[in-house]
Computed example of a mutant assay.
Amino acid sequence: MASAAVNANVKWYPVYTHPRAEKKALEALTAKGIETYLPLQRRLKQWSDRKKWVEEPLIKSYLFVHITENNLAEVLMTKGIARFIYFSGKITPMPERQINELKLLTASPYELEVTEENLQPGEKIKVKAGPLKGITGEVVAYRSQKQLLLRLEKLGCSIIVNIAAQYINRL
């Protein structure tokens, strides 16, 4: 019974890493036994002499830790971690649902684009088919294309997914 109470206090917290230190911070937190999630995306990178597929963070300088409030200091004392993300002046956990949606997005075959632009809310939609089935979001006009926008409220950014209009329903 006590174990269930402890698990109820474990929540996902977004943390900000030092620039380009996401993977090293992930390794350090994992070595401490802290459950960590770093959303990665495969991209084809072009150099002057070659092309190569690389895995890079979907959201630069962000990763997510699954901890209780008692572990906040331990996370901050980890190499590569800069700070927790604050909302309204306090450290706030993210809903489990948003982490699950982020995992679903990164596992999907769709090319993702992250923007920190403050996109205006548009028409509410729900994906009706494909690997993103069931995810709700907003449609916005972005770069003259209709795209699904899944706004993750606690991140302060938006994730844009290219998806055909035939795969969405209006809510």
Rank of each mutant, 00 (worst) to 15 (best):
A5I: 08
V6K: 15
N7F: 08
A8Q: 13
V10D: 02
W12C: 02
W12A: 03
Y13K: 01
P14H: 11
Y16F: 11
T17F: 06
A21M: 09
A25G: 09
L26N: 11
G33Q: 06
G33K: 05
I34A: 07
I34N: 04
E35L: 09
T36W: 05
T36S: 11
L38A: 11
P39E: 00
Q41G: 04
R43G: 02
L44I: 08
Q46F: 09
W47T: 06
W47V: 03
S48M: 09
S48F: 10
K51G: 07
E55N: 15
P57M: 07
L58T: 00
I67Y: 02
T68W: 05
E69V: 13
N70M: 14
N70H: 10
N71K: 14
R83F: 07
F84A: 03
Y86V: 15
I91E: 00
I91F: 00
E96Y: 08
Q98T: 12
E101A: 15
L102N: 07
K103R: 14
L104K: 12
L105V: 08
L105N: 02
T106R: 10
S108W: 07
S108I: 05
P109E: 11
E111T: 15
E113C: 08
T115E: 07
N118D: 03
P121W: 01
E123H: 02
I125C: 04
V127Y: 01
V127A: 03
V127N: 01
A129R: 10
G130N: 07
G130L: 07
G130R: 07
L132G: 06
K133L: 10
K133H: 14
K133V: 13
G137A: 13
E138K: 15
E138H: 13
V140L: 13
Y142L: 14
K146S: 14
Q147V: 15
R151Y: 00
L155N: 02
S158T: 02
S158D: 04
I160T: 05
N162I: 10
Y167N: 08
I168R: 08
L171D: 10
